[in-house]
Simulated assay, not measured.
Amino acid sequence: MDWFPIVAGTFKALALGTGMFFAIKWHYDQGKKSQDKEEESRAVLRAAGKVAAVFVLSLLGLGLVTFVIISRLSLDLSLP
Rank of each mutant, 00 (worst) to 15 (best):
A15D: 03
G9P: 04
G61H: 01
A13M: 11
L57N: 01
S34Y: 02
T66K: 10
L60D: 04
R46T: 14
G63D: 09
D36A: 15
V68D: 06
A47M: 06
A8I: 10
F55A: 14
L64W: 13
L60T: 09
R72D: 08
V54M: 04
W26L: 08
M1E: 14
L73C: 07
A53H: 02
A8N: 02
G61L: 12
K32E: 14
D36N: 15
F21P: 00
G49N: 11
Q35S: 12
S41H: 02
L62S: 08
F67W: 15
S71F: 12
E40K: 09
S41R: 12
G63N: 12
G49L: 04
D2P: 15
M20V: 09
E38H: 06
A13T: 13
D29V: 04
R72N: 09
R42C: 02
G61I: 04
T10L: 12
M1I: 13
F21Y: 10
S34T: 15
A43E: 09
I24P: 00
K50W: 14
L73D: 06
L75D: 02
M1W: 10
I69K: 05
K50N: 10
T18V: 13
K33C: 07
D76A: 08
F22R: 03
A43H: 09
W26V: 06
D76G: 03
A15Q: 05
V54I: 14
L57A: 14
K37S: 07
A8H: 03
S74W: 07
K12A: 14
L75E: 03
L16G: 01
A47S: 10
L14F: 15
A8C: 03
K32N: 10
P5V: 04
S34M: 12
H27T: 05
E40H: 09
F21M: 03
I69M: 07
L77C: 07
L57Q: 01
V7G: 05
A13P: 00
S74L: 10
Y28K: 04
T66L: 12
V65D: 02
K37Y: 10
A8Y: 08
W26T: 11
L75P: 00
S74Q: 15
V65Q: 02
A53R: 05
G61V: 05
I70D: 13
A43C: 04
W3D: 08
L73Q: 13
V56L: 14
K25A: 15
V54G: 00
I69F: 08
I24L: 10
A43I: 06
L59E: 09
A15P: 00
A52W: 13
H27K: 13
A8K: 06
T66W: 08
S71I: 04
T18K: 03
F55W: 11
A53P: 00
R42L: 07
R46C: 02
A13G: 01
E40M: 11
F55M: 11
F67N: 06
A8L: 12
A13R: 07
Q30K: 14
K12I: 12
K32P: 01
L77D: 05
E38D: 12
S78R: 15
G19E: 05
A52Q: 13
L57F: 11
L45M: 12
V56Q: 04
T18P: 00
H27M: 12
S74P: 00
R42D: 10
S41C: 14
K37Q: 14
